[in-house]
Amino acid sequence: MDKLTLVQAVNRALQLSMQEDPDVILLGQDIGKSGGVFRATEGLMEKFGVDRVMDTPLAESAIVGCAVGMALYGLKPVAEMQFSGFAYQAFHQIEQHVSRYRNRTRGEYPLPMVIRMPYGGGVRAFEHHSESREAYYVHTPGLKVVVPSTPSDALGLLRAAIRDPDPVIFMEPKKIYRSLKEEIPGDGPIHRLGEAKVVRPGEQLTLISYGAMMPVTLDAAAQMGADYSIEVIDLRTLKPLDEASLVASVQKTGRAVVVHEAPRTLGMGAEISALLMEKALLSLKAPVARVTGYDVQMPYYQLENHYLPSVARVVQALRDTLSY
């Protein structure tokens, strides 16, 4: 049985998807010969050839715009943005076309395509290499947005994203690309998009997060010790959000804390807080707390650990919410 890191699981998912469907093709900068700056596509050009693993010129809009054309033709392109911080050069293509084509053509031209992008801080990177801007994509009707936090979820969710009939923004938590290895039997799972996962059951508080903040969140839950029963939920898919799981958990626990590294204003925490107010108000024993990045530009890496939610900040929010 293979033990894979998250980035190796991404690679495995791409390989399996390309093996089972000849219409799956990859395009992006430095993904072929170099295997991608994070090696997510390592070995795939050798295996599938330059026609199916395309090293493109340096132009994000063209990568996404051409992927739109390929999907219109009937292929299933998986485009890589080298870093999410450069996806803005393609943002107009995502907003004006990727998200709209199925609806605007009344279903005549669906766009089955995936845009992968590593996101998030904590890797001491250059400017524009550390942001967490998933809210832009979640806000855009017509997209699905997926963020895995474990190797087996990365594999199962990416395979599902590539099989999905609609466009999926697949955001990869680069800080934890290699931080843990997981045994994945056989070809691994194929998940369903839109399903959150209870990774630790509990009774007193629901602690919600996703992506690279999951290890921080789990550490915080563990630090609370055996006296507190914390339920931890990994969202995995940000859109469509698994509302039913969140509501059911909070109806049981009566308390919720949401953790994300993206800025606070109009982030997932805001959405989840509104959802719980609408659907679980009478169960709530405390305000829904948010532990998030601040509403500032992501600082350069000297200060990034002050910006990113820490275990201590999450623990404090848990204590405050439990003792409210």
Binding site: C66, V68, M70, Q93
Partner: peptide, 14 residues
């Protein structure tokens, strides 16, 4: 001009 890229993608696919 956004559609010009779609045409290229269709061409690449073809």
């Amino acid at each position: 001009a956004t559609q010009v890229l779609h045409a290229v993608g269709i061409g690449m696919a073809a």
